[in-house]
């Protein structure tokens, strides 16, 4: 898992990333700055559960991804199925480029989780 995150973190604009299990427990994390990984894991997991319920109610099917933009940074939470992939990005990151890398990393997380 750590190798997947290290590779993802090399992409322009990525400030760090982590893999969280569905209970919010951190499986692996790699961040450039000092962040509260456990806190982020717990919040990301409960946020995704709440959003998933709302998305189903609007008839949009299962929730796959949430992109959150704040006045400081951007965050992407991907529901890979067995785990969540959290990516912290610079606010002005070119999402077109990063999306491809995040999708690849999410696929690798699924593969790793099967092992």
């Amino acid at each position: 898992m750590r190798a997947i995150l290290t590779q993802l973190n090399k992409v322009q604009g990525v400030r760090g990333s982590m893999v969280i299990n569905r209970d919010g427990i951190v499986v692996a994390g790699e961040f450039a700055d000092d962040v509260n990984e456990q806190g982020i894991g717990a919040v990301a997991s409960s946020l995704l559960t709440a959003l998933d319920g709302a998305v189903k109610r609007i008839n949009l099917g299962r929730m796959t991804r949430f992109v959150l933009t704040g006045n400081e940074n951007k965050a992407v939470i991907v529901d890979t199925g067995p785990a969540l992939l959290f990516v912290l990005l610079q606010r002005d990151t070119n999402m077109g480029l990063v999306n491809v890398e995040i999708r690849d990393a999410a696929k690798q997380v699924v593969e790793q989780a099967k092992m």
Binding site: L51, L68, E72, F86
Partner: peptide, 24 residues
């Protein structure tokens, strides 16, 4: 839910969110 947690997720104050579902 999203704005209440945005600071804890390290992005600062909430500005925008995109929820992607299977069909929209």
């Amino acid at each position: 839910t999203a704005s209440g947690n945005s600071v804890k997720l390290g992005v600062g104050n909430f500005e925008e969110g995109v929820i992607e579902g299977e069909s929209g």
